Simulated scan of single mutants.
Amino acid sequence: MSTLSWNCRGLGNHRIVQALRSTVEKEVPILVFLMETKIPRKQQHKMKEIQNSIGFTQGLIVPSEGQSGGLALLWKPETFVNIKGYSKWFIDAEVICGNVQGSWRFTGFYGQPDTSKREETWQILESFGHSNVLPWLCIGDYNEILRARYTWSRHFENGDSVWARLDRALANEEWMRKFANARVVHISTIESDHCMLCLQWGHDTRNRMNTRKLFRFEAMWLRDPRCPEVVSDAWERGLSLSSGFPIHNCLHSCREALKRWNKLEFGHVGRRISALQAHLQRLEQQSELHGEDI
């Protein structure tokens, strides 16, 4: 099982949404907590479209104030979540497990960016702690710096870099005893200057069965002038088959032809992207040795 937390810096960018969808498919979290969605109340239909695209149709959305802030806690219908409270700084909930693990508390937290007012949001967490009786996990962007692995970076034209730990997951002793093998994985992206935090625990619930991968039509194919010819020839081959349904034959022929053409002309784009992201993460880890500790 896992939860995903990300200061995405705006869901209006389709590349941000694509990165989120890709990580959700890979990590299969039960909860997704997003900060700085930058989606105001009048554009909440966009948030619903994003939820549907990643398969997390349930959730609580805190709209942004213009192009500033905005929170979202998302989950799937099979996950039972009871919202306890929320504001522009947090979403507090009880997660109800249907197994022997019982219930636990989840707080998605976004610290006040204004340092002069940051104490206000820390007081919120302090009040939660005084009243809490459940195993408790608190995850998010605290906008506070700790001496630990960096989760935020900024690079300047003169070659200087600043690295800081702003995003983190905290849990009380009860939660740690319940999920003793929990670990935090930092997922680097080129779409945001914040890493995603993936908190993993328990057995690996990701489906690793050898099922046929879903075929997806790549938009980049349309930019290649050879694409119409590939589709046209494949469609004709499908029509020439004497058995089966013509439309099924044509679609199957097009799918297989496009897959072969993509492999020959473009290679495995998904694997290349994954390899580049892994390389980026290694470079960031190496750069930490030269980053400015602030």
Rank of each mutant, 00 (worst) to 15 (best):
Glu256His: 06
Ser116Ile: 11
Gln18Arg: 13
Thr205His: 09
Cys250Gly: 06
Glu284Leu: 13
Asn99His: 10
Phe90Trp: 06
Ser274Tyr: 08
Gly12His: 05
Gly102His: 11
Ser153Leu: 09
Glu173Ser: 15
Glu144Arg: 11
Trp89Phe: 14
Ala257Glu: 04
Leu134Asp: 06
Arg21Ile: 07
Gly111Arg: 00
Lys38Met: 10
Glu144Gln: 08
Val95Phe: 10
Arg41Phe: 12
Phe109Arg: 02
Thr211Trp: 09
Asn13Ile: 03
Trp235Met: 08
Glu157Ile: 13
Ile187Ser: 05
Ala19Cys: 07
Leu239His: 07
Arg216Pro: 05
Phe33Glu: 01
Val100Ala: 15
Val184Leu: 14
Ser232Pro: 02
Ser127Phe: 12
Lys178Pro: 00
Gly12Phe: 03
Glu174His: 13
Ile39Asp: 01
His203Gly: 15
Glu27Leu: 04
Trp261Ser: 07
Arg147Glu: 11
Asp204Ala: 12
Gly85Ala: 09
Ile61Gly: 00
Ser188Trp: 12
Val184Ala: 09
Glu265Val: 15
Pro29Gln: 13
Ser103Lys: 15
Ile187Pro: 01
Glu174Ser: 15
Leu11Pro: 03
Arg177His: 14
Leu146Lys: 13
Glu218Val: 02
Arg212Cys: 12
Asn52Tyr: 04
Asn143Gly: 05
Leu264Met: 10
Gln18Lys: 15
Arg272His: 06
Leu258Val: 03
Glu36Lys: 07
Gly69Gln: 05
Leu289Thr: 09
Gln43Ile: 04
Leu251Ile: 08
Thr79Arg: 08
Asn143His: 06
Cys97Leu: 12
Trp201Ala: 07
Val230Gly: 05
Phe128Leu: 15
Leu134Gln: 04
Asn132Tyr: 12
Phe266Thr: 09
Cys250Val: 15
Ile139Asn: 01
Asp114Gln: 15
Arg21Val: 02
Ser242Asp: 08
Gln200Gly: 00
Ser253Tyr: 02
Trp221Val: 07
Leu34Arg: 00
Leu74Thr: 00
Leu199Phe: 11
Leu283Tyr: 14
Trp152Lys: 03
Lys46Val: 10
Met196Ser: 00
Asn7Ile: 05
Gly98Ala: 07
Phe266Arg: 08
Gly102Tyr: 09
Ser240Leu: 11
Arg183Asp: 04
Leu166Ile: 10
Glu120His: 04
Tyr142Arg: 01
Asn210Pro: 07
Thr107Gly: 03
Ile187Thr: 04
Arg282Trp: 12
Pro246Gln: 14
Trp175Met: 03
Asp160Trp: 09
Asn7Thr: 02
Ser64Tyr: 02
Asp224Ala: 05
